[in-house]
């Protein structure tokens, strides 16, 4: 933790310039998702999945660390990756809502992994061509990881959708629960518009057709019905308006650095 330890919480996302805010959005989503996946440790349905879920969690946490490190440099106030992860309160977080939802059963967890990886993989691939060299380097590594996550989770979606009556029922329920949170992954606001114009970030809307095609293909193979395209979509995480769940996640995750201000771990 840096020397800025006597305050209770820090604000970074608020009034942040577009590039910093964009990096924070990516970092927060990666960390929160990695944290959720890590909650599976010791609870997976089989040993092989213990290892696979932990792998994906480690990938996300690794991505978050690179992104926070970059965000801290952009912020320029001497903060560290840990300050950004451990000292910001809920309204300053900018993750997608879908990342912060509780794990639910294995059906919910692998479906979320699939839906998110199907959006992130093309996103990272496009971001790897960014004019921002740091983002491009982070994206190039993350794209390889996302490709693996997509394959792993996609195979599970097919297995569970097409498996037994029970697994099909659970996947259908997971799809109903998670689908309203998928729209946010393709939202673009003034922050994106500015970065797209500069060639720093891709336009998420342009990547949506690839995601839709991937989702349609896998759901069809999983014998699951594709939800109606015009369904109501939840939104807010990218603006700091979250679900009730994020506060609990942060309370657990930030407990030690918050309880012992200034301590080095």
């Amino acid at each position: 933790m840096s020397g800025i330890c006597d305050m209770t919480s820090i604000l970074v996302a608020q009034d942040a310039p577009p590039l910093l805010l964009h990096v924070l959005r990516l970092a927060d989503t990666a960390l929160v998702l990695g944290h959720r996946l890590s909650e599976w440790t010791g609870r997976a349905p089989m040993l092989e999945e213990e290892l696979a879920l932990a792998n994906a969690a480690l990938d996300y946490i690794g991505q978050a660390r690179s992104l926070y490190d970059y965000a801290a440099r952009l912020d320029g106030r001497g903060r560290t990756e840990d300050d950004l992860a451990y000292l910001r309160d809920t309204p300053d977080w900018r993750c997608w809502l879908i990342a912060e939802l509780p794990n639910g059963d294995f059906a919910h967890s692998v479906l979320r992994q699939f839906l998110v990886a199907a959006a992130l993989q093309p996103y990272w691939r496009a971001l790897a061509a960014s004019r921002d060299a740091t983002l491009a380097a982070i994206a190039a590594k993350a794209e390889k990881e996302a490709a693996y996550h997509l394959r792993h989770a996609g195979e599970w979606v097919i297995r569970l959708g097409d498996g037994t009556d029970e697994s099909h029922r659970r996947m259908t329920e997971a799809l109903e629960d998670l689908w309203p949170y998928t729209g946010e992954m393709f939202e673009a606001d003034a922050v994106e518009a500015a970065l797209v114009a500069e060639g720093v970030a891709p336009d998420p809307l342009a990547l949506r057709p690839a995601w839709e095609a991937m989702v349609a293909r896998v759901l069809a193979e999983a014998t699951l019905d594709l939800p109606a395209p015009c369904a109501w979509m939840q939104s807010g995480g990218r603006r700091g308006v979250h679900t009730e769940h994020l506060g609990h996640l942060l309370a657990v995750m930030q407990h030690l650095p918050r309880s012992y201000p200034g301590a080095v771990w």
Binding site: H35, S38, T41, N55, I61, R65, E81, V252, L256, W265
Partner: peptide, 20 residues
């Protein structure tokens, strides 16, 4: 879930994964 830094979190998760 309560590891006090991102480095510790990743290391602990990797350790527990090694045990698996």
């Amino acid at each position: 879930t309560r590891a006090p830094s991102l480095r510790r979190k990743a290391a602990l998760l990797a350790k527990v994964q090694d045990e698996g």
